[in-house]
Write a protein that binds this DNA or RNA. Structure first.
Lengths: 343, 343
DNA sequence: TTGAAAGCGCTAACAG
DNA sequence: CTGTTAGCGCTTTCAA
């Protein structure tokens, strides 16, 4: 390529990075040779030579789910603008896969690492600690939790929200409407500890208020179908019957809502339903599903911002607690709509 | 790292790639040093030295949409098992972004390239042609179409289905139910040429049958809301009134279905609705939405298979035409459900 | 079974 | 403004 333009490699390299530095006629010849040969610079060689990796590695449970897709979008937008490339891998909510993918991503010598949540396998934890010790910013997203007592492990920057608070808010919302027999419907995903934490906080808050709370685990498979199935289970409970249920996600809750309609069961009079995630479908049903709106995009953009700042100033990234909102709609409130926000 | 184990770098390299070749006591020392130092080999250097890239680059319109997420999953699974890494970028249905992302991905010297659809910018086409000429397999997915007449451009392997056929099948399904005033509702995404092709084939088939067809473009923004809005537009058409509508995707169709219910408009008696994509929500509504089931996952797995075969045998990848299915449900058929399949 | 030498394609640093 | 030299961390090839 360089000889095609009648210059040396370094001149082409410079033209590609800082066109202004190259003389205009030289630039013209390079441009011509570039399009003629279809040359694309080898990134492996470039990154190796410059040492400075411009890659950010991110590990998310999945991308299919709109929840994490928006976070990826926010990350990608923020990083791309600053000239960083985003390398994403999905873990499928498995700590084992997370460790495996993390090892693969670290091979690209990323300038920073983003992982989801604060629970990791021992091996992954070791890799992350090594990375942090080597000066690579490590950020845990989608969680914001005080350090566990007696934990000797390295702690990482957290950007997200506190799931205990959400669980409590969900309980309070239903208790305030007068419910005394409540249920939490967990997803069938064993390693989604954040859903479990919300459930634990939910039941604790309910019981602290002197009401009763049960936990049901949804079957795996299609989430709508799982929600439909769970509705049947909930209706069999009692007496006294359960009058309100909180779900690990909106798809489960929507399934239950649709099944309730199919059975002619009045929502919220006979059974109030509360989702989590505020997916697009939630607002569309009738009654509309009450849910918890999450900072999906903000987690991505804030992480990018914090990361870039840390990279620029060569110090640790700053943790961020982001706000969520409980949006009350028809499925929990017979009339009107109200809103509760993160403390 | 090498000196930590008391050997040279090449021995560590060998241990990492072919453990059996290294003496067992040496292996043991290396293993120990490995976990002690948290060493992760630098992929940039490795790939540069070996020349052999084990990366497959893929460009998809987006990942948030469940349609393409499943394809990515299928690709990823198939490739990972064979030791390849998948590098994915999203184009947001923009040819300009596609070219930009393609250029970025090619910098990783991928062993193969996967792009979505057969329409690309001139620049992207040139890059792809160069890659193909250099022996890199290039596959176009989500389409399967005979070469355009008079096209001088390089042609690439296609793995997907024919959108004209789908458009025709959608028309025939509604015509067979006796509809004579039909509409096609296109998505607001200008560069989703596949949706436009289905629409053109749909209207052509309708008109060939002596019935009337109009095309409406949905507004951008939330797809459910767009579908709701479009229903209002459809109802204002005529007289004679439109009695059936086919949509560019299920979200639009679901929005219209929900809005019809809200207005007390009987589906399918007063207006039949037919979606595309068979999203999870389609089966859940009442009446359930008729839709076209797509080989989302199969496109990914077949592409991986074809790619690996091409890489192994050092020749071009084989094109594959994959089957789709029109699933008739309550939104187009008052009673029972039937099925029409790709020819 | 292990090592030494050379080089992958690019860029940092320094000259001119 | 452009070129020369050296070297990024690994793997290939050949030798011991």
């Amino acid at each position: 390529m360089a000889q095609a333009a009648g210059v040396t490699a370094i001149t082409v390299s410079r033209f590609l990075r800082e066109p202004a530095v190259v003389a205009s006629d030289t630039a013209e010849r390079i441009r011509a040779a570039l399009s003629r040969t279809g040359y694309v610079p080898n990134k492996q060689a470039g990154l190796l030579a410059s040492g400075a990796g411009n890659i950010v590695a991110a590990l998310l449970p999945n991308l299919a789910n709109s929840i994490f897709a928006e976070t990826a979008q926010g990350l990608s937008d923020g990083l791309q603008a600053a000239g960083y490339e985003l390398l994403i891998a999905a873990t499928g909510y498995s700590l084992e896969r997370e460790e495996h993918q993390l090892r693969a991503l670290l091979g690209w010598q990323p300038a920073a690492v983003v992982v989801t949540g604060r629970r990791h396998s021992p091996g992954a934890l070791q890799l992350l600690a090594h990375a942090k010790a080597a000066g690579t910013p490590v950020i845990e997203i989608w969680d914001h939790h005080p350090p566990e007592r007696g934990a000797g492990r390295t702690s990482f920057t957290q950007i997200g929200f506190n799931h205990d608070e959400v669980g409590r808010a969900m309980a309070e919302h239903l208790l305030r409407a007068g419910h005394r027999r409540l249920a939490y419907v967990d997803s069938g995903v064993a390693e989604d500890y954040r859903a479990h934490e919300r459930g634990m906080a939910f039941t604790a808050a309910v019981r602290a208020a002197g009401a009763s709370a049960t936990v049901t685990v949804a079957p795996s498979g299609d989430a709508f179908d799982a929600g439909r199935h769970v509705l049947g289970v909930l209706m069999q409970a009692g007496p006294p019957a359960i009058t309100a249920a909180a779900f690990a996600n909106d798809h489960l809750a929507c399934g239950a809502l649709l099944e309730a309609q199919a059975r002619g069961l009045a929502v919220p009079q006979r059974l109030a339903l509360l989702g989590f995630g505020d997916f697009a479908i939630a607002r569309q049903l009738d009654p509309a599903l009450s849910s918890v709106q999450l900072p999906r995009l903000a987690i991505g953009t804030e992480t990018a911002r914090s990361l870039l700042d840390a990279l620029r100033r060569r110090k640790g990234a700053a943790p961020v607690s982001l706000p969520w909102t409980l949006v009350a709609r028809g499925s929990t409130a017979p009339s009107g709509a109200s809103v509760a926000t993160a403390p």
